[in-house]
């Protein structure tokens, strides 16, 4: 999603956007500074040919935290690019641990994992992770649009002002029906609205894999409809791996993985989709 924007950025140079500038103090310092100090990327994201496999895990074993007993072991699965995969299992079966490990937040004890051909680590803009209960600073003075804008930071770098991605932000706000809430402070949003805002942030990041930990848990039926139509829209080319508890919904997914008693079973595998990263 961010790709068209990124190419535009390289071809036309830095596009100044008025909306962002307004957010900023000392704007008189801006031009000399950006000329003097080059932006340093947070992390270098190498593009490896993934051969159409979004996530590949072999003999994977993890614990919830370093030093804890293993939550599961000997886990093998592969998810093709563009697949919508569900991760089911009872409470405490390690769904969250698996998702956090894939996101790079939790070290793996054994085995190998490749996401788009690269091992999980922090600083990857191609992977987005949304926690079940995001740990946000309460009452932080932040408007929804600025929160969604944070998704573009992955494509900026240290010392750089936000200067591209405006079109993507508008699109994401539209898709998740957040337009009317754009100026609302984050702490005044309901649980479902916040969930949608964070999903919009992940979209703006332009991630190719979305790792979602029970995204429907806080949603009412309307919010859920909006999020579902977004996640299952056939034109969206991203891969989704979602922890969920709802058995009725499982037929919508191309692939179902079940974690139980420390092992993982692939209940329903998907043969793959035509995928296009670039």
């Amino acid at each position: 999603m961010a790709k068209d924007d990124a190419t535009q950025r390289t071809s036309t140079g830095r596009r100044p956007t008025k909306v962002m500038r307004k957010n900023f103090p000392f704007s008189f310092l801006e031009n000399p500074l950006s000329a003097l100090i080059p932006a340093v990327p947070y992390a270098k994201e190498e593009k490896v040919d993934c051969h159409g496999v979004a996530i590949l895990a072999e003999n994977l074993a993890c614990s919830a935290q370093p030093g804890f007993p293993l939550a599961f072991q000997n886990v093998n699965f592969s998810i093709p690019c563009g697949c919508r995969a569900a991760l089911i299992g009872p409470n405490g079966s390690g769904k969250s641990t698996l998702l956090r490990t894939l996101a790079g937040l939790n070290p793996l004890a054994e085995g190998t994992v490749k996401l788009l051909g690269v091992e999980p680590r922090l600083g990857r803009s191609r992977i987005a992770y949304l926690a079940q209960r995001p740990q946000l600073t309460p009452f932080f003075p932040l408007q929804l649009k600025r929160c969604v804008q944070m998704g573009t930071y992955a494509h900026h770098g240290w010392f750089e002002e936000c200067h591209h991605g405006e079109a993507n932000i508008e699109k994401a706000l539209q898709l998740l029906d957040l337009k009317s809430l754009a100026d609302r402070p984050i702490h005044q949003l309901s649980g479902g609205q916040l969930q949608r805002a964070l999903l919009a942030r992940a979209t703006v990041q332009g991630a190719e894999i979305l790792l979602l930990d029970e995204p429907f848990s806080a949603l009412d039926s309307r919010s859920r409809e909006i999020v579902e139509s977004f996640l299952f829209h056939s034109q969206n080319t991203f891969t989704v791996l979602m922890a969920t508890h709802d058995p009725a919904e499982l037929k919508r997914f191309d692939c179902v993985l079940e974690l139980n008693h420390g092992t993982l079973k692939t209940l329903h595998a998907c043969r793959g989709h035509p995928h296009h990263h670039d």
């Binding site: 600083g123 010392f159 750089e160």
Partner: peptide, 21 residues
């Protein structure tokens, strides 16, 4: 001024800051 967006992000959502590096 230089670290404004990073500091704002890390103060608001530490985990996301960690995720993007």
């Amino acid at each position: 001024r230089l670290l404004h967006k990073e500091l704002e992000l890390a103060s608001f959502d530490e985990e996301y800051a960690q995720l993007i590096g």
